[in-house]
């Protein structure tokens, strides 16, 4: 990754033009050619430095639902339960964290009622309680990672 890649990442995390030739427009602001921008984005995607290139939906507005949930899993059971939990396609990401509640994951479903049913299925499959902690209020979302 060089200086140009870095400026691409920094600029295009903030937004991407919506017009007939968006790469050409974005490339101008970066002082490179359209073809170079396209090639570099393709490589960044290939190298998996980017997870995605496109929209981040407000999932509730799209009719779907998200929640954060936690479980307390004994250390010697952890990997097994993590495998079981991660089998569920509704799991967006899952972290082991340092706390009595040591497994934290985000569930995303196509509609709000599926959150409760998915949690029930996870509890049944694993035998452990799931603590559901849905968002009650959003103060700030600023996932911006400058490089």
């Amino acid at each position: 990754m060089d200086e140009i890649d870095r400026s691409i990442i920094n600029q295009l995390q903030r937004g991407f033009p919506i017009c007939e030739r968006p790469y050409e427009q974005a490339a101008k602001a970066l002082s490179i050619t359209e073809a170079e921008l396209i090639n570099r984005i393709a490589s960044l995607l290939e190298e998996k430095i980017l997870t995605r290139f496109g929209p981040m939906y407000q999932i509730e507005k799209a009719g779907g639902a998200f929640t954060l949930a936690a479980m307390s899993i004994p250390e010697d059971e952890f990997d097994k339960v993590a495998d079981q939990v991660n089998q569920f396609p509704e799991i967006a990401h899952n972290y082991e964290r340092a706390h009595k509640l040591n497994m934290w994951f985000v569930l995303g479903t196509e509609n709000p009622s599926e959150i409760a049913s998915t949690i029930k299925r996870i509890e049944k499959e694993t035998g452990y309680k799931v603590f559901n902690m849905p968002k009650l209020e959003e103060f700030y979302v600023g996932l911006y990672f400058p490089v």
Partner: peptide, 28 residues
């Protein structure tokens, strides 16, 4: 398509439109 995506951004269905990075890969 352009009009539709613009509308989704304006009404908040899309909260951000651009690159989404894998932050671990960037040293975070």
């Amino acid at each position: 398509v352009i009009t539709c995506i613009e509308e989704w951004i304006n009404n908040g269905l899309i909260k951000r439109f651009g690159l989404v990075v894998k932050h671990h890969k960037l040293g975070y």
